[in-house]
Design a protein around this nucleic acid. Structure first.
Length: 323
DNA sequence: ATGGTTTTTACTGCGTC
DNA sequence: GACGCGGTAAAAACCAT
């Protein structure tokens, strides 16, 4: 009796799961739109609402092909993956703090002392010179701020790379570690298409906004970083979700911004302001209640700017619909 | 440093609940 | 009367030169 019950449960579960995964392959769980694969970023993204369904996909296959033993040797990838997020790229030796051997047995007192000494020296070598310590601290900061801003791993990696370069080019003297770290993160976020406004970044940094801006400009110039002005659309999803608005609103906001971009209304205006205005205007069109002050709060943009922008946005939209 | 543009600040008037 | 909204003028911030 119990036997049959268990079996049916298991069967149901199995069929349900296969169905779900098959369905999930091409449908967005949020809006039901078709999914497209972004090979470059390793993401599966909804074509309609832009929801990232799956990320961090990676090509784990071997390098193209190998013709003889030497090449096989060279092209095989063995060992832990390196990461720029640790100051030594995760390649140095780490000694466990537990006094156990590889089998989990406790060590004798002689061995314990030995391990103490080894740990001490290993640590000293690991963070040998000031640059290493500098990096360690900066990467910690980057990680902390990135978490606070909800930025994905790849942005942190990019920020780490930028910081490393700044360090290599001796851009640090005269500037604070935190300032450069924050700027690196700000730059990385923009570069990766997940921009955060200067205000937001300043909010989680220990450094003043002005200094961040100054350092950011400096770093970008010295490193020759190419960073395009942020796309207003990239702010929309966040504002929408923070204000608890519908997807319909988000869609409208996007299309508002698109027509505005086509008409060239956007140049010279702050992308954040545009995004905020678009969200407000879209909420108006879908009869959802948001006040200007709420939007201005989450976007940290003045209400006046929202007013001015959203008038322009609506005009541009009307112009395209009925000329 | 300068001038032009954009954003912010501060204030006022209007309508609604 | 508080609130949301709109408009305006002047100040401040920003940007390219």
């Amino acid at each position: 009796m119990t036997d049959t019950r268990i079996r049916t449960n298991a069967d149901e579960e199995r069929s349900e799961r296969t169905e779900e995964t098959a369905d999930e392959r091409q449908r967005c769980p949020e809006c039901g739109g078709p999914l497209v694969t972004d090979e470059e970023r390793g993401e599966r993204v909804c074509d309609d609402c832009g929801l990232v369904v799956e990320e961090g996909a990676m090509d784990r296959g071997p390098e193209w092909r190998a013709f003889d033993a030497t090449e096989r040797e060279q092209k095989s990838r063995v060992g832990a993956p390196t990461t720029t997020m640790m100051h030594d790229k995760g390649l140095s030796t780490n000694i466990d703090w537990r006094d156990k051997d590889a089998y989990g047995n406790s060590l004798g007192s002689r061995q314990r002392e030995k391990m103490q000494r080894l740990r001490k020296w290993n640590e000293r070598f690991r963070t040998r010179d000031s640059k290493e310590r500098n990096l360690k601290q900066a990467l910690g900061e980057i990680d902390r701020m990135a978490s606070a801003l909800g930025l994905p791993e790849n942005v942190r990696e990019t920020a780490s790379v930028i910081y490393r370069r700044a360090l290599d080019e001796d851009l640090l003297p005269g500037r604070s570690i935190e300032g450069v770290a924050t700027s690196s993160l700000y730059a990385a976020a923009r570069q990766s298409g997940n921009p955060r406004s200067l205000d937001e970044v300043a909010g989680v940094s220990r450094v003043e906004k002005e200094e961040i801006a100054r350092t950011y400009r400096y770093v970008v110039r010295e490193l020759g970083l190419e960073i395009e002005p942020a796309d207003p659309k990239s702010y929309v999803p966040r504002f929408v979700s923070e204000l608890d608005l519908s997807e319909e609103t988000e869609r409208r906001a996007r299309s508002l911004l698109e027509t505005a971009t086509e008409k060239g209304i956007h140049s010279g205006k702050s992308p954040v302001g545009l995004a905020a205005a678009a969200v407000y205007a879209a909420a108006l069109l879908t009869n959802e209640k948001v006040t200007q002050s709420e939007v201005s709060d989450v976007a940290s943009i003045s209400e006046v700017t929202i007013r001015n922008r959203y008038h322009e946005l609506l005009e541009a939209e009307d112009g395209t619909v009925a000329p």
